[in-house]
């Protein structure tokens, strides 16, 4: 746990437990965990697997910046975001967003906001590897 970082790009499988442990404090009655999971289809076309690439040196700080944006909008506690890179099989977790807050409404709203902003500005790219063998960046 000593190397835990709340905002991280990693090529290792994601585990929500350390993020939940990090965000939870005695003043927070709500902890929302969102997991984005690789699914086997996109727009009706079968997907074999996904791969992700990131501008890792920048993406970590951008995730922290997004958390600060959320904190400016809602009274929330700690936030942790981990995003996976490399090849992911169907069913593996690509991203974890974990938000703590005194009350649930703020925790849900902030978690949704953080995920939306990741999709807008975090320098991370998904490549869809279709079941028919073609590959395509989602950009």
């Amino acid at each position: 746990m000593s190397d835990f970082r709340p905002f991280e790009i990693t090529d290792r499988p994601l585990d929500p437990a350390p993020l939940v442990a990090y965000v939870q404090t005695p003043g927070d009655g709500a902890v929302v965990t969102f997991a984005g999971v690789a699914r086997n289809h996109f727009g009706g076309r079968p997907t074999a697997f996904l791969s992700y690439e990131a501008y890792a040196e920048m993406a970590g700080p951008v995730l922290a910046q997004i958390a600060e944006e959320a904190r400016a909008r809602w009274p929330i506690g700690r936030v942790a975001v981990h995003h996976r890179v490399g090849r992911l099989a169907i069913g593996e977790t690509a991203v974890l967003v974990v938000v703590a807050a005194p009350h649930r409404h703020e925790a849900f709203a902030a978690a949704a906001y953080v995920m939306d902003r990741i999709k807008e500005i975090a320098p991370i790219w998904k490549q869809e590897h279709w079941a028919d063998g073609e590959a395509e960046w989602r950009e």
Partner: peptide, 29 residues
């Protein structure tokens, strides 16, 4: 991005800068 911070087309470059052109991002699933 210049030196890993968001920049604009008008940003002036300096010797040694790291410039990144970031195609539309697609994190998450």
């Amino acid at each position: 991005a210049v030196n890993q911070e968001f920049a604009s087309p008008a940003t002036t470059l300096h010797d040694g800068d790291e410039v990144a052109f970031i195609p539309p991002v697609s994190g998450g699933v």
